[in-house]
């Protein structure tokens, strides 16, 4: 259970079109991440699925049932909010129990579900506290627990980690992945953080301006971005975009498709100290595991080179640089991917 299908889902606020006809099919048990810059409509899309909002047109199906006009409560979904939205006046236990009581679940069943979730999320010792007495990470766990006890058809998570500090975010990310592996329930996860998207997702949905740019597995997204936007959005540091002449200088032997208007090459695929193209170094960022060089080619185009490991380079140095063979991405005049 947990198959979700969207057909031409549109959402307009007056003249503003926030979702421009989304078609999407999410398989049962899949971990899907909606990613995109702020204002791209990813949270709006999640709200249409949750039932908290109704689309202006289109159709939403869950497990084959048309739920377009079904209220949030009756879709069998659970949501984890960005602000956690824990009920501040209830204890942790009551927060977990509230939704189950609303469904008239027998007390014993409620107790056993809460105990199970508490064990899974290690929040058993917090049961009598109120949200105000919890740390950020603990609140996050409770918020997830509140969704888990519902045993929902699918989990909807709206930027759930964005209020945590960096360290906690990494560990919670791992826990979420473990949770999904264990529950095998469909999860839809909204974030603007590509690292979360890449590490968690079975498939990533990249959105821009209310439309889907690409739906693919993380590696496919990384290796074969469908257009310049996706190519630039995924991967850090950002992909270098060069004109054909620069690309030819970096990869002399490479054949260029006729339709290519621009060429992308990831910083990791540029090797310093190799080849014929010269780069003047403007800035060196030594990160220990990696050295990032910001520089200019002879043509004046700016490039970023990421060298795995440490290297001795200083501002003002002129280095030779070459692109790895077969690692170029070609885009046509409309920014669509062109196969080599």
């Amino acid at each position: 259970m947990g198959h979700i299908r969207l057909e031409v889902v549109r959402k307009t606020y007056g003249p503003l079109e926030v979702l421009k006809g989304i078609d999407l099919s999410i398989e049962k048990g899949e971990f899907v991440v909606f990613v995109g810059p702020s204002g791209c409509g990813k949270s709006t899309l999640l709200r249409q699925i949750s039932g908290l909002d109704r689309p202006s047109s289109g159709r939403i199906e869950i497990d084959g049932r048309d739920v377009t006009d079904v209220g949030a409560a009756d879709r069998g979904l659970a949501m984890v909010f960005q602000s956690y939205a824990l009920y501040p006046h209830m204890t942790v236990r009551d927060n977990l129990a509230f939704g189950l009581q609303n469904n008239r679940m027998p007390k014993a069943e409620i107790a056993s579900r809460i105990a199970e979730a508490a064990r899974m999320l290690e929040i058993g010792h917090l049961m009598t506290r109120r949200p105000g007495q919890l740390s950020g990470g603990q609140r996050q766990r409770v918020a997830i627990g509140r969704a888990v006890v519902r045993d929902p058809t699918a989990f909807l998570l709206d930027e759930p980690l964005s209020n945590l500090d960096a360290e906690l975010r990494v560990s919670m990310r791992a826990e979420l992945a473990a949770l999904h592996a264990r529950l095998k329930t469909t999860m839809i996860y909204v974030t603007h953080d590509q690292v979360e998207a890449m590490t968690l997702a079975d498939r990533i949905v990249v959105l821009r301006d209310g439309a889907i740019e690409q739906v693919a597995t993380p590696m496919e997204l990384f290796n074969r971005p469908a257009n310049r936007f996706v190519a630039g959005f995924i991967g850090a540091p950002r992909m270098n975009f060069l004109d054909v002449a620069d690309a030819a200088a970096l990869a002399p032997g490479q054949a260029m498709p006729g339709a290519a208007a621009s060429v992308g090459v990831r910083p990791q695929n540029l090797r310093p100290g190799d080849g014929e193209a010269a780069m003047t170094v403007d800035l060196v960022e030594a990160l220990g595991t990696e050295t990032v060089l910001h520089g200019r080619l002879a043509s004046g185009s700016r490039v970023i080179v990421a060298h795995a490991g440490q290297m001795a380079a200083r501002r003002g140095d002129v280095l030779a640089v070459a692109a790895e063979a077969g690692k170029l991405h070609f885009f046509d005049a409309a920014d669509r991917r062109v196969e080599a």
């Binding site: 908290l52 209220g71 409560a73 009756d74 909010f81 960005q82 939205a85 939704g99």
Partner: peptide, 10 residues
Amino acid sequence: ELLEAARMDN
């Protein structure tokens, strides 16, 4: 969001 969470909680 609290109200929405409650609506999700049926």
